[in-house]
């Protein structure tokens, strides 16, 4: 049991961080929307799913003839991330416009928005399952792998010291997530729109009185969350090379868990929560067997919330400093 743990410590750590990095990026969307609107956007997992399909479409359009590695892979992933980010960002804004804004305008309760979120989530999943995927791939509606371009990622071990092997795609995921995180942190803390977001999170009424355009802030929040999910989707496609209409479901739950674990509403908490959750899952499955992966992860969540109900970092967006 623990012998395995020592044997597989390094590979598990790397895998845990790269899995956690994707959780963290998706968690940002949950956390930002919660921070601003006090709404759990359950359709966010579908925004991620849309991102994976946008990246896949780009990949199909490029039509690689051989797997790429090194700088070419970085360039490719960057391109996929830009496309997926834009598509996901736009989808998130559109989602807000259709599913939440009318409710918000009429002053509906937050529960109504929650139901709307679940409805939007189901709608988007089924839209892909029943209409878009069969149309696009000319497939019957079946559960199974979608055809992914054969050549994509060339995996290279960048650094290998004994068991400590870092593979290029895993490193890209971790670095990608951290770069996006720093960029977002700077954006929220340094720009005028970022200040607007923080102000709205703190006190929407006062923010309006101070001249913040709340609709613009909400749109921006959804946009940013969507972009992050799109980048995560591009990284996910590079790392796992597969997608489907239900791809966001479990990942969305995990990302939401990561957001709660780190402290919902807290941007840095999303990073901490994501990486922690990724590591816990990997270590847990080494020690107890992979079947226990989710049990371990959620047990840790319960324990953390018992002693720190606001999550590890516990701060919310409104109080985030510098």
């Amino acid at each position: 049991m623990f012998g395995n743990f020592i044997d597989q410590f390094w590979p598990s750590t790397i895998d845990g961080l790269s899995l956690g990095a994707i959780y963290a990026l998706v968690a940002l969307g949950y956390t930002m929307v919660y921070g601003v609107l006090r709404l759990i956007n359950f359709a966010h997992s579908e925004i991620f799913m849309i991102g994976t399909f946008a990246a896949l479409a780009t990949l199909n359009a490029i039509g690689l003839s051989a797997p790429v590695g090194g700088l070419a892979l970085i360039g490719l992933v960057l391109m996929l991330a830009v496309v997926a980010g834009l598509v996901s960002g736009a989808s998130a804004v559109a989602l807000e416009f259709v599913a939440y804004r009318p409710l918000r305008r009429r002053g509906a309760s937050r529960l109504a928005a929650l139901i709307s979120a679940i409805g939007a989530s189901l709608f988007l999943q089924q839209l892909f399952a029943r209409v878009l995927i069969p149309w696009w791939f000319d497939l019957p509606k079946e559960k199974g792998a979608l055809p992914i371009p054969k050549h994509f990622t060339e995996t290279v071990d960048l650094l290998s010291i004994g068991d400590f092997i870092i593979r290029n795609d895993k490193l890209f995921v971790i670095l990608g997530a951290i770069v996006m995180m720093i960029a977002l942190d700077q954006f929220v803390n340094r720009t005028q729109l970022g200040r607007g977001i923080r102000a709205t999170a703190q006190d929407p009424e006062t923010a309006v009185l101070m001249g913040v355009n709340i609709d613009r802030v909400v749109s921006a929040t959804f946009m940013i969350g969507g972009v992050m999910a799109g980048v995560a989707a591009a990284l996910y496609l590079m790392r796992f090379g597969e997608t489907n209409y239900f791809v966001g479901f479990l990942l969305g739950i995990k990302a939401f868990t990561a957001a709660v674990l780190g402290g919902i509403g807290n941007l840095r908490g999303a990073l901490v929560g994501g990486l922690t959750l990724g590591l816990i899952e990997m270590y847990g499955s080494v020690i107890f067997g992979s079947a226990w992966q989710d049990v371990v992860a959620f047990s840790v969540l319960v324990l953390v919330l018992m002693f720190r109900p606001t999550g590890i970092l516990g701060e919310s967006l409104q109080q985030a400093r510098a």
């Binding site: 895998d15 796992f240 597969e242 479901f249 499955s285 067997g289 992979s290």
Partner: peptide
């Protein structure tokens, strides 16, 4: 070892 068929990352199983 058992995997969770809903999941997408089987890295722990691969390591084992």
């Amino acid at each position: 070892d058992a995997i969770n068929p809903e999941g997408s990352d089987f890295a722990a199983t691969v390591n084992k």
